[in-house]
Write a protein that binds this DNA or RNA. Sequence first.
DNA 1: GTGAAAGCGCTAACAG
DNA 2: CTGTTAGCGCTTTCAC
Lengths: 332, 332
Amino acid sequence: MAATLRDVARLAGVSTSTASRALTLPERVNAATRAKVQAAATSIGYAPNKAARGLITGRTGTIGLVLPDLANPFFPSVAKGVQARARAADVAVFLADTDEDAAAEAGLVQALSKQVDGLILCSPRMSVDELNAVAADTTVVLVNRLVGDLPAVIFDHQDGMRQPIAHLVALGHRRIAWVGGPATSWSSEQRGKGLAVAAAELGVELIEVGHFPPHYDGGMAAADQVVATGASAVVAYNDLVALGLLARLHTRGIAVPGDLSVVGIDDIAMSRMARPALTTVRMPKQQAGRLAVELLLSLLDGVESGARKTLTVELMVRDSTGVNQRPEDGTV
Amino acid sequence: MAATLRDVARLAGVSTSTASRALTLPERVNAATRAKVQAAATSIGYAPNKAARGLITGRTGTIGLVLPDLANPFFPSVAKGVQARARAADVAVFLADTDEDAAAEAGLVQALSKQVDGLILCSPRMSVDELNAVAADTTVVLVNRLVGDLPAVIFDHQDGMRQPIAHLVALGHRRIAWVGGPATSWSSEQRGKGLAVAAAELGVELIEVGHFPPHYDGGMAAADQVVATGASAVVAYNDLVALGLLARLHTRGIAVPGDLSVVGIDDIAMSRMARPALTTVRMPKQQAGRLAVELLLSLLDGVESGARKTLTVELMVRDSTGVNQRPEDGTV
DNA sequence: GTGAAAGCGCTAACAG
DNA sequence: CTGTTAGCGCTTTCAC
């Protein structure tokens, strides 16, 4: 059996409340007794039972992270950031993968919300109403989605989508295709809009090729339609789709970037490893995770209420010389 | 405030103990009262406080998953499997990423172990002694590492490493290089041994090129040494290393597989997307995660004690026709 | 079959 | 500054 606070108290010859104070509010205790208690605690390897503490303080020291799919490299990056920041704050993280299933997501969130102080919902697929319902009885921070005034960490799609367009225009492109993600995806909508605005401003044509699954196979499926548009460049919903495009274009003997330029979005590790390396728009994924935790913690402390953080994104122009290839997420 | 069991009991006009029984041991309660209680519970959206329950039952309904690095695609796959199986058993999962830091890992495990029923340690970096110490006061299941008799889920490196060697031999290779992972890695050691045994059996030469970081950059670093060995084929510690090799070989103008054949290990999603696609040894990562959970749960129920599961691995021969490209981890 | 009472490990008043 | 008391929400004897 693990040591309890009573054991510590007994060993130190004080009451349990004094032992408790010595460990959690050191200032309110005589230095001598404090030392005794702390010595006793370490000597028997005492670790507080967080569940018991949570029962009385109402804080469990735990947050939940819900995301659509760990197999999509975007999400482990966010998770890594969340995890790191939470640990620094001595907070534990429950992880839940919903498998891109909106219904499962709602159920999971429901269940999780009872066991945590707050929830980070990354790219949630559930409806606005469901989301508002959850937010009504749990502290929630959204990542990569905006719903009403709910606290959120998002990426600057406005500026972020202007960058690849400006880049392509500078290279002489005038007809640019856009391969969208799922029709229900908030970020796909934002990305499409951002590109359209930038294209209009810069006086070039943006051709929307349609909605595709946000995966490698989605890119394979989109490739021929992209070619048929006659565009000289294409921006893909994300890097996975861009890599799928690359594969199919290669099969068809279409040179990249010679015949067609391809730009991805997200900057997953894989995009640096493709050949040709993929020019992409970097989303600071780990940072988003870290910020989401900070936002959530400050919300729990009652510091802020309707906060929203928008993260700067950055065009990564990749070429064979390896310029600009530094990884966001550490060495991979 | 969330509804408590007392609220349910009051609403149903019974005592809290009856309410408790009606919800957890339905057989021991009159059908009529049971129905009343259950109706009351759902009507106010009652969900039991797991922390309070855990305080008394000694079971928290939570397990911990500790892994070295979410940025390495191997681990999110395992995590996905763990997560899915745990959810099916209505068990929550704490996630901890140690950043490949053995010291941090030991501390994390220590802290986590107090809050969970059991721990899944995936490719743990800590020492045998530390591991035994942890296992002494927590139920632990190892994944991808073997220490004494500790319960573990591992991959069949014996047979797994014979497959790529046999494949390469069949293609006519007689000098095969092996690019090992970190010197401290259990799986690197196992893989190296397995290859050596197979090479000896098949009468070909295995040249150990040394130890490299288990990343893309490690492969880049190893490439020139591999070339210098004069081997006609190389097996890399993992796919990331293999992809790094591919990149550097391409830079040097060495054709793959024309001049040099490259085989990876793990079958991460990325390996299907490389060009040329990477022949690799598939490790059933999600399955390992699922089995680890099952093993842990049965251990917690006192069913088994020194169990060990060995998973079959499978050579994935990749070529430009797309044969054998089905993904393990769902569509990516 | 059901209720009363005790207590899991801890913290938060409240006295002293 | 420290000890006593109460109780978080739940399960589990133990009577009835």
